[in-house]
Simulated assay, not measured.
Amino acid sequence: MEKYKCIYPSEFPAALKHISDPPKKLYVKGNPEVLNNISVAVVGTRRPSLYGRMQAEIISDFLSKNNVTIVSGLAKGIDILAHLQAIKNNTPTIAVLGSGLENIYPQTHKRYIDEIAKNGAVITEYEPLEPPINFHFPERNRIIAALSEATVVIEAPEQSGAIITAHLAVKMGKEVFAVPSDVDRHTGKGSNKLLRDGEAHPLLSPHEILESLNIQIQMPFGDGGTQLFGSGQQQLLPHLTDKETRIYRTLSRKSAKTIDEISASTSLSAQEIMISISFMEMQNLIERYGAGFIKK
């Protein structure tokens, strides 16, 4: 793979070419063609809670398995979790930098550059040796918003790059989703405010992202094949891991079971149960009922 290439506005996707302040050029490591893919931005805090980390992984896993390219900023926290899920699934992801390609920030993420470029692209409007100057990060967010059909915000403080990206997406007429956060969690105040002010849709299931974009949803099953369903069809049970299957089978639709009761029935730890339950809630398979959980 060549080191990197430079492309100019004539080669940009239309969504980037026609924003009010398009970059004069882009340096690209990887495949420039992925800039034309159907893409969704996944952004959020650099310091996510366990819940935020799980949501980033679940949402990014779902998107990447449904042939959606994930766009983010290579930052610590939500950004890198989103990129890594795409890498894990061997699907494209686009990292938009706030520095030059020969001055990766944060340096600890330099090791992921070649993996991202293998199927996707690492891009920047800054010269190769340009350092990561503070104003570069909010500036590059317009590129993240422009390349994406929708933006998903996961646990973002009020004064954060993720909120800037969301506001830019709104101005561009793009869909914005926010994962609801605890009302007293500092890192979720910005995303909750987006919901309060009507600038974002509450994201209760990752299916809602693709449904809003009229993208056909493909759900992987245990045989490695796919089943297709739309919003008007009955949702089919997706492939579950062994732990998730054990939890699902111990639940009923008539009476709720607490974490302790599930643990006693499955011999799984509370942490293992919470991680699995979070995934199954997002898949609309189970729901909270009182102090416990039931099948839907």
Rank of each mutant, 00 (worst) to 15 (best):
V96H: 15
A95C: 08
A86R: 03
L63E: 10
H109M: 06
N141H: 13
T91V: 01
I87P: 07
T124N: 07
S64D: 03
R111I: 14
I70S: 12
I133M: 11
Y112N: 05
Q55W: 12
R53D: 00
R111A: 10
L81P: 02
I143G: 03
Y51D: 09
E127F: 11
I123D: 03
I80S: 02
P92Y: 05
P132I: 02
K76F: 10
I70H: 09
G77S: 04
N67Y: 01
E125Q: 08
S49H: 06
F62S: 07
A95Q: 09
H136R: 03
P138C: 08
Q55G: 02
L84N: 15
K76P: 01
G77C: 15
N66K: 01
L74V: 01
H109Y: 08
A117E: 03
Y105M: 06
L50G: 02
P128W: 04
K88G: 00
E130Q: 14
R140N: 12
I70C: 11
V122Q: 11
H136P: 02
E102T: 11
P131A: 05
A145N: 14
P138F: 06
Y51Q: 01
I104A: 11
Q55I: 10
I113T: 13
L81Y: 03
F137P: 02
Y112M: 04
D114Q: 14
S99A: 13
N89P: 08
L84G: 10
T91H: 00
T93D: 05
H136S: 01
I78E: 11
T91R: 15
R142Y: 13
G52Q: 06
I144H: 09
T124R: 04
L101F: 15
N119R: 14
Y112W: 12
I80W: 06
T124Q: 08
N67W: 07
I133H: 10
R111D: 03
K118P: 00
I59R: 15
N89F: 08
Y126K: 06
Y51M: 03
S64H: 01
E57W: 09
A82I: 09
R53G: 02
M54G: 04
Y126L: 01
I80G: 05
F62T: 04
Q107G: 04
N103I: 08
E102F: 11
I78F: 12
N67I: 00
M54D: 10
E130N: 04
I133W: 05
F135E: 12
A145T: 09
T93C: 14
E125R: 11
F135A: 11
G52R: 01
P48Y: 13
L129D: 13
H109T: 07
I59E: 11
K65F: 09
A117K: 03
G73D: 05
H136Q: 05
H83S: 12
N103M: 12
I70P: 11
E102H: 15
E102V: 00
